[in-house]
């Protein structure tokens, strides 16, 4: 199970990087969203995937899910959610002010 999820997150990383390398601003943002999904899956897998076990450590419980990766993932999801929304607003304004959403045309002045 761990291997499958890790391969999945690898695919997510690959598609994310492909999208980040595009010129269109919206595709780049989709790329950043995908890369955060990939990273979150890696966190989840690192705590070992177990089905049907509660995250409780008690004298009587022998098998339990590691709760720490879930706490980390939650924090990380909230952060990337916030940044994605900021990035969407920022790129909307940028595209409007610069009259383009093509990164190739946003390089800056060439005659400096």
């Amino acid at each position: 199970m761990e291997y499958i999820v890790l391969i999945l997150s690898g695919i997510l990383f690959a598609t994310a990087i492909y999208n980040i390398l595009q010129k269109q601003l919206l595709r780049i943002i989709i790329g950043t969203v995908l890369i955060s999904h990939g990273a979150h899956l890696v966190i989840l897998t690192m705590g070992k995937l177990k089905r049907g076990q509660p995250p409780i450590l008690d004298e009587s419980v022998t098998s339990y899910t590691d709760p720490l990766p879930q706490a980390l993932i939650l924090t990380s999801i909230v952060i990337s959610f916030g940044i994605t929304s900021l990035l969407l607003v920022l790129s909307y304004r940028t595209a409007k002010e610069n009259n383009t959403d093509n990164m190739e045309e946003m390089r800056g002045e060439s005659n400096e």
């Binding site: 890369i35 955060s36 990273a39 990337s80 940044i83 990035l87 920022l90 940028t94 002010e97 946003m106």
Partner: peptide, 19 residues
Amino acid sequence: LRESIKYVLINLFSSMLFV
């Protein structure tokens, strides 16, 4: 706006690698 979008993107990318 034009420069900050590059700044945000590069930092977002490296943050995700950090995680």
